[in-house]
Design a protein around this nucleic acid. Structure first.
Length: 904
RNA sequence: GGGCGAUUAGCUCAGUGGGAGAGCGCUCCCUUCACACGGGAGAGGCCGCUGGUUCAAUCCCAGCAUCGCCUACCA
């Protein structure tokens, strides 16, 4: 007998097996012969710690990679992190602030040094947390976006795009975060609807009496107005085009101009134009001929500049707003103020309201790259799963705008551009002194000026620029490495829809551009994890569930399995801890099933079993054996199919259903008959139990790696496993079905359920042995029942079972009407006739309802004419069956009624 | 403004053009020799509303309602 704990305790077991796997190097594809299968992880940011999203994301990747590894693929999962420019810089700057320092006091080099220090201390946290949930990444290939190799890839890409004219520098309005003091791309701006005020301001005309009223949500920007625009077709205003206005508070004159984008129906139909601080105003200004002047009144820190006038200069933009409104009120120039709800852009990192600012920045001319990326999805060279996301992808890609890639921060890949201060010749001047180079130039390639005359661009690149190269830079590009040849394109990218544009689209563009092939075949987009009420988890709301606490409370296996079971749900996953608890019970169930089997095995039994196992499919197996093997085959088939279609929940549920409700509830109970006997059959049964357990564990291993390994190791010596770990054992795929066994089992189960029905409803204690009489409706059923009486006796706790074709229902029996058979339980006067009649009537009522529906259909000529034949046949069979059952129920009820009368 | 998604048992959600499902919760019976983190039985649903297509609609189409998300230069 083998001793196993009564319940599963993951403590210690998880660490033990993770260490074992990594020591053995199972997570590395090196030395494996199979076809390659690769995934690159969506690199988490080094400032973060593992949250539910990461957990879900990596659980799914791990399920896929473990599954493929077991199927014999040369499976590689590349882990890594990204440097998260703004976020990381923010963290370290906060640290400095505590010390009364800032990065400018420290200087660039020393600051960068500090950030690396921080990174080595805290940046690896998330990688360690991934190990806790069992992620089978190849840690020997772990990458960081600022690694030397990946940095080289970044410079290579920048230089090549620049040389092809796809990267350029321009001075135009960009989204500026006044707190981070950097430019942001359009995607890094989050729009949120907020309650604001629409202020109507009177602008007096300069050259005649009258005024134009403009409406604005940002009164402070009036200080930077350089025109008022109206629609040239607007009868109210068109005569005023060309007139001048006296701009209040600023002592300047502005022209009234015409622009067709002005909506006459909105506000007053007249718009103040602030080209330096509003995107649409910038566009209006540029459409005018000559262009309207640009007057910058807000600076990089969000404070008013000297251009705003002495009264306002230096004020914060929001304080200035108050002052401007107060001043205008005093001057009697406010017409009215209305409440107005509108959407405002915020910095995605620090939530500060964005200020559009005109600054020189680097851009990627994205349209040519986007075109290829659109085609790749259209041609199905890349499959997006679920494909409903394709539309979102297309609509963004088709309306894509140039990508601002420069950031005014220090932590990141410094832009590989130098400016020649001397510009000694015409060529250098023609190039604006710009030098773009992979390596630091020793002198100006245009004019030969010496290195001291060259000043490198201060800015760094958007972090997503390096992330976009991730699928090939992690594999060694720009070098032509073996890894790159073997594993690119990767097979699937698993990610949330929130970074479809940020990351997925950009990887596709860069992969196609620089590798000449897609970066991955499939993109599997999963839902985002929310709390049980559907709220986004966030620290400020305090509704964050820590995955590591889940692992601590329920074990990594139960937690992972929950994530898989949740995975199919649309855009949101409402995470509920109750379900994790439920799956912990499942782990325990599995544990105890294994415990049961092991308790019935002795060390001497190994040899007996091993020869039994080798020919487990022989026909000396019992019906139950053949049935469970067929169910196992069906489960394996469903699991593989579901996984190949990324239906993680279906796969998880198939296994759950099989192990708990078929293997444990039915098969193990049936096996006891044989196991507790002393017959030869015992060894067949034990072999079959072991075989099914072994296969169940292997099916489950990608979902629950730890407990399956622990259990598998305990049965290993009995099952003649060649491998030393379940992680590298084979995954069950195609096993033989046995339809005959499944069919026969159906009637046995019906008989057992029939008896249990009556017991349950009559509140007969499970301890009480009952007599049962089963009437079969044809000889075949009778035969099946007679051959397998032992199962019925055991599972229904029936002491005496009679089976026959022409049995009479004993007096005072409760009845259960089943498919092709009826079960009678003689209750010797204890039967509550009244209650039994009620029970049967209830059942009859259900059948009557179905019968009504089915009858209607079969009387409908259109149905008979137009419905497919198999449906009609099915419907007829159903009808016949219902009629039969109904008659049988009726007979039963009538007999009971007669009896009732007699008893009276 | 444009787009997408959701609405199914008390709760969280699967699902399918042809007899409504799971987990949890609830009710009842049971500490039977793997497991009470267990076993058995049961109750509970005009599948959001209104039309249309169809022999047949919870499923397809249109509209409406409610909620959510994405996207956008309406000041």
């Amino acid at each position: 007998m083998t001793e196993i704990e009564k319940s599963y305790n993951p403590l210690g077991i998880e660490e033990k097996w993770y260490a074992f796997w990594t020591e053995k190097g199972y997570f590395s594809p090196d030395g494996i012969e199979g076809r390659p299968f690769s995934i690159v992880i969506p690199p988490p940011n080094i400032t973060g710690s593992l949250h539910m999203g990461h957990a879900l994301n990596s659980a799914m990747q791990d399920i896929l990679i473990r599954w493929k590894r077991m199927l014999g693929f040369k499976a590689l999962w590349v882990p890594g992190t990204d440097h998260a420019g703004i976020a990381t810089q923010n963290v370290v700057e906060r640290q400095l602030a505590h010390e009364g320092l800032d990065r400018h006091k420290l200087g660039r080099e020393e600051f960068i040094e500090r950030v690396w220090q921080w990174r080595s201390e805290y940046g690896g946290r998330i990688s360690h947390q991934l190990r806790k949930i069992g992620s089978s990444c190849d840690w020997s290939r772990e990458r960081f976006t600022l690694d030397e190799g990946l940095s080289r890839a970044v410079r290579e890409v920048f230089v090549r795009l620049y040389n092809e004219g796809l990267i350029y520098r321009d001075n135009r309005l960009i989204n500026w975060c006044p707190r981070c003091r950097t430019a942001l791309s359009d995607l890094e701006v989050e729009h949120e609807e907020l309650d604001g005020t629409l202020t109507y301001i009177r602008y007096p005309l300069a050259d005649r009496n009258g005024r134009i009223i403009v409406a604005t949500t940002r009164p402070e920007t009036m200080l930077g107005d350089t025109a008022v625009a109206v629609n040239p077709d607007d009868e109210r205003y068109k005569d005023m085009i060309g007139s001048m206005i006296d701009l209040p508070l600023a002592n300047r004159k502005l022209p009234v101009v015409g622009d067709r984008t002005v909506d006459p129906a909105f506000g007053t139909g007249a718009v103040k134009v602030t080209p330096s601080h509003d995107f649409s105003d910038e566009a209006i200004a540029k459409r005018q001929d000559p262009q309207l002047p640009f007057l910058k009144v807000i600076g990089e820190g969000g404070r008013m500049t000297d251009n705003a006038g002495r009264r306002y200069a230096g004020l914060d933009r929001y304080d200035c707003r108050k002052k401007v409104v107060a001043d205008l009120k005093e001057a009697g120039l406010i017409e009215k103020e209305e409440k107005y709800r509108h959407s405002i852009g915020h910095c995605y990192r620090c939530k500060t309201i964005i200020e559009p600012l005109s600054t020189p920045q680097w851009y990627v001319d994205i349209k040519p790259l986007a075109k290829e990326a659109i085609d790749a999805v259209r041609d199905k060279r890349i499959r997006i799963v679920p494909d409903s996301w394709e539309n979102t992808y297309f609509s963004w890609m088709e309306n894509i705008r140039d990508w601002c890639i420069s950031r005014q921060i220090w932590w990141g890949h410094r832009i590989p551009v130098w400016y020649c201060q001397e510009m000694r010749n015409a060529e250098c001047r023609r190039q604006n002194g710009i030098i773009v180079s992979k390596d630091t130039p020793a002198s100006c390639p245009h004019c030969g000026a010496e290195a001291v005359a060259l000043r490198q661009d201060e800015d760094v690149l958007d972090t997503w620029f390096s992330s976009a190269l991730w699928p090939f830079s992690t594999l060694g590009w720009p070098d032509g490495t073996d890894d790159l040849r073997t594993f690119y394109p990767t097979n699937v990218l698993v990610t949330g829809f929130d970074i479809l544009f940020f990351w997925v689209a950009r990887m596709i563009m860069m992969g196609l551009k620089f590798m000449g092939d897609v970066p991955f075949r499939d993109v599997y987009i999963h839902a985002l994890v929310r709390d049980s009420r559907g709220q986004k988890m966030s620290k400020s709301k305090g509704n964050v569930l820590d995955p590591l606490i889940m692992v601590e409370k329920y074990g990594a296996d139960a937690f992972r399995f929950s994530l898989a079971a949740f995975a199919a749900q649309g855009r949101d996953i409402r995470f509920s801890e109750d379900r994790v608890e439920g799956y912990r019970f499942f782990v325990n169930k599995l544990w105890n099933a294994s415990r049961f089997i092991m308790m019935n095995l002795g060390a001497d039994d190994r040899e007996k079993l091993s020869c039994q196992l080798s020919d487990i499919s022989r026909d000396r197996l019992s019906l139950a054996d053949r049935w469970i093997l067929s169910r196992l085959a069906s489960t394996a088939s469903e699991t593989n199919k579901a996984l190949s279609e990324y239906r993680f929940n279906d796969a998880a549920n198939a296994i759950y259903q099989f192990i708990w409700h078929e293997f444990c509830d039915w098969y193990i109970e049936m096996s006891k008959q044989s196991i507790y006997s002393d017959s030869d059959e015992k060894w067949n049964t034990l072999a079959c139990l072991l075989y099914v357990l072994d296969n169940s564990l292997r099916l489950l291993h990608p979902f629950m790696p730890f407990v399956t390994e622990e259990l598998w190791q305990t049965i290993k010596s009995y099952i003649q496993a060649n491998e030393e770990s379940i992680a590298i054992s084979g995954y069950p795929e195609t096993l033989p079905f046995d339809e005959k066994a499944e069919d026969e089992m159906h009637y046995i189960m019906e008989a057992i359920i029939g008896i249990r029905n009556i017991r349950g409803e009559m509140n007969i204690s499970p301890a009480t042995e009952v007599k049962a009489v089963i009437k079969a409706f044809d000889r075949r059923i009778e035969d099946i029942l007679l051959k397998n009486l032992n199962y019925i006796i055991r599972l229904a706790k029936a002491g005496d079972v009679q089976v026959g074709l022409n049995l009479e229902k004993p007096k005072g029996s409760a009845t259960s009407v089943k498919d092709m058979l009826e079960v009678y339980l003689p209750l010797h006067g204890v039967l509550d006739t009244e209650a039994e009649i009620e029970r049967l009537l209830k059942e009859k009522k259900k059948i009557d309802e179905s019968l009504l529906q089915a009858g209607k259909k079969l009387l409908n000529e259109d149905f008979l004419k137009r419905a497919p034949k198999d449906i009609i046949d099915k419907e007829r069979a159903k009808y016949d069956d219902l009629i039969l059952r109904n008659e049988r129920l009726e007979t039963g009820i009538n007999k009971l009624r007669e009896m009732e009368v007699k008893n009276d």
